[in-house]
Simulated assay, not measured.
Amino acid sequence: MAAVERVEDVPVDQAPVEALRGRLDEIADRWVTHIVAKNSGYLDTALVSLPDLRRSCRDNADAMLRLLAGDTGAEPYAVIRASARRQAERGVPLDSVLRSYRLAGLAVWQEAMDALPEPALLDVAGSLWMVVDEVSAEFATCYHYHRTELELLRMAEQRRRVMVDELLRGRGRESSFLEEAALKLDLPADSPYLVFAVEPTSAGRPGVEMPTETLAAGNFRSVWQVSGEALVGLVALERSGQEAVLRRLRPAMRGRGGVGPVVSGLGRVDEGYRLALTAMATLPPGSPGLAVLEDHLPEALLVRSPELADMLVRELLGPVLDLPGKEGRHLLTTLAVWIDTNCSVAHTAARLYCHRNTVLNRLNRLETLLDRPLKGRATFVAVSLALTAWELGQARP
C-alpha cells in the first residue's frame, strides 16, 4: 500500500479547526444521520445502539480534527485504533467502516460550510481529505492486525476443542497425543483428575457459573468445554483432593450435574466422563444439583441398565401399578416412607399424617398384591431397587 502523506506536513490555521471542535456535537449528529441514511448496513452489522454509535462518532470526529490541527501525539491515533479493535471483534466489514469514515469527512465539511467564513474553508479543504485518508489507512492497518489475531485465537480454540473431544473419546491412551494435549491445554498429564458433566438450565444458561475462575481461585487448573448437550470439566487434583473441588463448585451449580470418581491421569478422563454422565442421570431432569457417583451407586446401576430397571419395576411392582385411580401410588408412597424410616410403622404414620393402623393396612395390602412378605433381605433389596427404578422412571421425560 502506497504511503499516505501525513497531515502534519500540511500547515493548517488553528482557528478554524478549533471552531469546528467547538461544534463536535453537531458534526457527530450529521455523521450519524449520514450513516443511517447511506450506510445502514454498518449500523446493523455492528450491533450497536444509536446512542453508542453517536458517542463513537463524536470521539472519532474529535480525533480527526486534532489530526487536522497537527496534533502528532498518541491520543488521536489511540481512538482510531480502539475503534478498529472493536469493529474487528464485532466482525463489521472493513469496506463498510471505511465508507463511514468518508461520510465523516462529508459531515465535517458540511459543518465547516455552515460555520466558517470562505477563507477559512479554503484552508480546511486543503487538508481535510488527507486526514480522512490517513485515518482510513491507520484504521485498516489496525483492523487487519486484530482480525488476524482473532483468527489465530479462534484456530487455537478450535484445536483445544478437538483435543478435549479426543481425550473424551479415549485417545489419551496414546502417549504422543497425551503429551501434546497436556502441553496445549496447560494441564498436567500425571495428576489425578475429576471429570464433571453439567447440563444447562431450563433457560439455556450455563449450569455452573464461571467454573474455571472459581477453581483457579483455589489454585486448581481446569478446562471446561461443551460436548454434546453437556458442559464437561476436567479438573486436575495436583495439590488438594475431591472435597476441596466440590466445596468450591457446589455453590456455583445452577443446572443438573454429575461427577465420577477420581481417575488416574489425563489419559483416563474418558472413563471419568462416562461415569459423570451416569451420575448426572441419577438426578431428575431439570433438577439443579451435583450428584457424586459414589453417593448414588444404586441409582447408577439402574440408570446404566434402563431395560433391566423397567423389567424390575414391572415384575415386582406391576400388580400395584395396575390398580385403578391413585391407590397404587398411595401404596408405593407408603412403602417408600416405611423403608426410609427403617420399617417403623409409627414414624411412617407421622410422616404421612395418618393413623398407624392405616399404615399397617396398606402394608398388608402390599404383601397381598406382591405375593411376598416385605421382611427379609432379598425382598427388601429387590423392592428398594424397584422403588428407586420407579421413581427414576417417573422423572424421565
Results as ranks from 00 to 15, higher is better:
12 V>S: 09
20 L>P: 04
71 D>N: 06
31 W>V: 08
181 A>I: 04
262 V>L: 01
327 E>C: 08
74 A>M: 10
28 A>H: 01
124 V>Y: 01
334 T>L: 07
208 V>K: 04
178 L>S: 02
162 V>R: 09
178 L>H: 03
361 N>D: 11
298 P>G: 05
137 A>R: 02
162 V>D: 07
23 R>H: 15
82 A>R: 00
262 V>I: 06
88 A>H: 00
244 A>K: 11
178 L>N: 04
233 G>I: 07
222 S>C: 05
282 T>D: 06
392 L>G: 15
330 H>C: 08
333 T>Y: 09
356 R>A: 12
281 A>E: 05
89 E>G: 13
250 R>L: 11
218 G>Q: 13
202 S>Y: 11
7 V>Y: 02
97 V>G: 09
181 A>Q: 02
377 R>T: 13
222 S>V: 05
70 G>D: 00
198 V>S: 09
175 S>D: 15
97 V>Y: 11
26 E>N: 09
228 G>C: 04
74 A>I: 11
125 A>K: 15
206 P>D: 05
163 M>A: 14
256 R>D: 10
157 E>M: 10
138 E>C: 14
289 G>S: 13
123 D>F: 02
301 L>V: 11
201 T>H: 04
262 V>S: 02
238 E>W: 00
372 R>I: 10
309 A>F: 03
138 E>R: 13
207 G>W: 03
4 V>Q: 00
78 A>L: 09
161 R>Q: 11
22 G>W: 03
135 V>E: 00
